[in-house]
């Protein structure tokens, strides 16, 4: 492990920027000589199994350990120069769990988000932009307010980006994106019907555009300044996506590790990045197959956002 953390650091989002042990420094220098993923997505699986195997007495203790590990991993990723991280914190499907566990998780989230807002000095020092993906209407009003405050507070920060998915499923995200587009169609800003090239040009002149992949991308939660992940990591030996970033990770390098999330250490992160480096060129070539004549969008779209306001704009026609 990188450092022995103080109780205050254990409770917080940022661990101290101390000197790394020599072997970590050496490994980092060696690995950083190759390409480093810009965006890594994590499925933080295995907290409950960790609590059971270590006899912690309560599954929430396992989630707390998982959070401490997340703070360490954020620090390691920052040192590697990874600019964006997305974590799957809570799935909409997780509401099926016992009431005790769900309320415990919500309490933990409230505590951590409040702690983040209170840590003003650290926030200004690290300059990390926090975004929340998912269907927030399923959460308590207090949590929604905290999330909104964090987003507003860190909106202009450019030191990196952390996307927290809570409560999230990819299908829900895609469906909400479709619904946003349908509302634009109803308002007459977007045209649905397939038309000939001649009529398409006329529609463009009128400021009406057709639905394409880029428009769906822009209307997703990740459309507000997020990028596609280069590396998708899942811990705990499960080999499935579990409804996480299915649209965004369709062409991504997917890496599965057998260790439980609280045991996902520096060595495991290095292994994942080395694996990414080994297959990077091949994965990029395969994803480039996508750009055929059929797929190439005639118009690209962007979601302009400020606070809770969203505006879909065409940036190239």
């Amino acid at each position: 492990m990188a450092t022995n953390l103080t109780a205050d650091e254990e409770a917080g989002w940022f661990v101290a920027q101390q000197e790394q042990p020599w072997w970590q420094w050496l490994l980092r220098r060696f690995i950083a000589s190759g390409p480093i993923p810009r965006h890594v997505a994590f499925v933080m699986d295995g907290n409950r199994r960790f609590a059971k195997s270590k006899h912690l007495g309560n599954v929430i203790k396992g989630h707390e350990k998982g959070f401490v590990q997340l703070a360490k991993i954020l620090d390691w990723c920052n040192r590697f120069g990874i600019r964006e991280i997305t974590v799957y914190a809570f799935s909409i499907e997780n509401f099926k769990r016992s009431e005790d566990e769900v309320s415990g998780l919500m309490r933990l989230a409230e505590e951590k988000f409040q702690k983040l807002l209170n840590d003003s000095e650290k926030l200004d020092e690290k300059r990390i932009c926090f975004r929340f993906y998912g269907n927030r209407s399923l959460l308590s009003s207090r949590l929604q307010k905290l999330m909104s405050d964090i987003e507003k507070r860190t909106e202009k920060f450019d030191g990196g980006r952390l996307n927290v998915c809570m409560p999230y499923t990819s299908r829900d995200e895609i469906t909400r994106s479709f619904e946003t587009i349908r509302n634009h169609v109803k308002e007459g800003k977007v045209d649905v019907d397939d038309v000939s090239e001649y009529f398409l040009n006329i529609l463009k002149k009128c400021g009406k555009f057709q639905i394409n992949e880029s428009m769906i991308d822009a209307c997703l939660d990740s459309g507000c300044g997020g990028t596609v992940p280069d590396l998708f990591i899942r811990t705990s030996g499960e080999h499935r996506l579990s409804d996480f970033l299915m649209w965004q990770a369709a062409d991504t390098h997917v890496y599965f590790d057998d260790v439980l999330w609280p045991e996902f250490g520096y060595y495991n992160l290095c292994k994942a990045i080395l694996n990414y480096q080994y297959y990077r060129t091949t994965v990029v070539k395969i994803s480039a197959l996508n750009v055929s004549e059929y797929d190439a969008p005639s118009t690209t779209w962007k979601m302009k956002f400020s606070g809770d306001d969203r505006d879909l704009i065409a940036i190239k026609a």
Binding site: S170, R171, R240, L241, S242, A249, A250, I286, S287
Partner: peptide, 17 residues
Amino acid sequence: VPTLCGYPPWNLRITEF
């Protein structure tokens, strides 16, 4: 190669790999 190569994304919700 550890990628899904653009497999229809909607249908991979709980698929085991």
